[in-house]
Design a protein around this nucleic acid. Structure first.
Lengths: 162, 162
DNA sequence: TACTGAATGCACAACCTGACCAGCATTTCG
DNA sequence: CGAAATGCTGGTCAGGTTGTGCATTCAGTA
């Protein structure tokens, strides 16, 4: 994958991404028909988007809620400076319910998104998280409802316009 | 899509999801070869997973960083109770840089993930966010590094084992 | 025992993919 | 200005894949 800063999306790129986002199962040929361009063009554009890293992949999007993990929560962690982030990150990586983790600015050091089967189950997961040596303090926030589900299309559109 | 609580994943489901996550471009036929089962079986399982909502889709995953939005930040918002969430959510939905938003427990009301082209650009986005009537206060946290990128495979594996 | 759901193996036509190619317009640059 | 590079078009080709239907087997269950 090219890591260069070739960050220009044009209108066709944006429409292609949109089309794929809306109907992922359609192939290159169908895309070319819908977009009104030659198949080779779609193929070339797609290859380039993947190559530039704009499209990171086409993996299946799993819904944690659908497999029983209906509770989402954000946990901020304070790390004992003595040991650094790495052991804590490794510990977190070993917990399946930790879906992502970022180091952050502010009074805490790490922000992670975790899921659980229920509020009771959430306690179990948090206990597991704080069982790491390096964690001094954890602060839990529960996500009540998803007002805006994760999306990138509007961003793509605005990037293509600019 | 079936919304029932048919949340049982067996080993084959998990291996299928894993396989698709690792090599998304392979087809049903190739999956059946790799998993050592009949093609119809893979097809049926896949259909069921999609139907149950376990697999939400196969859309292209866009990397905001690759299209120039290299700064990620989490913003918590306090909402003026008088107006409620809805106008604020609508306002946020109109800002492309807002990738997701959740209502949350705790002293704030909304947590959203936003991206920007730079720290300077982040200011512009935040200004845009707080320009809404209903927002009383915004608190911004910048994500410095992604320690654990968003993932669901470990969860799938653990769900299948349990 | 009979029924049901699930997996298998097989076959078919229709379709799509990746790989080519020549032609043409636009842009870049010596 | 002319040459080279680039990108899009429209076409061909062989081979693989998909969607579908069907008969069969097997395990669990009423």
């Amino acid at each position: 994958m090219n890591t260069g800063q070739d960050v220009q999306l044009d209108d066709l790129d944006a429409r292609l991404i949109e089309l794929l986002a809306e109907e992922p199962r359609i192939g290159v040929l169908e895309c070319s028909r819908r977009l009104g361009v030659a198949r080779g063009t779609v193929q070339a554009r797609l290859d380039k988007l993947v190559d530039r890293g704009v499209i990171a992949g086409f993996g299946p999007e799993i819904s944690p809620a659908a497999i029983g993990f209906g509770v989402t929560s954000f946990v901020t962690l304070e790390i004992s400076q003595r040991h650094g982030h790495d052991p804590v990150t490794a510990h977190l990586a070993g917990i399946p319910e930790v879906l992502e983790a970022h180091t952050i600015t502010g009074s805490s050091d790490l922000l992670c998104r975790i899921v659980a089967r229920s509020n009771t189950d959430l306690q179990r997961v948090i206990d597991q998280i704080v069982s790491s040596e390096g964690i001094r303090r954890a602060s839990t926030i529960i996500a009540l409802a998803e007002q805006i589900p994760y999306r990138t299309l509007p961003l793509v559109r605005s990037a293509a316009r600019g």
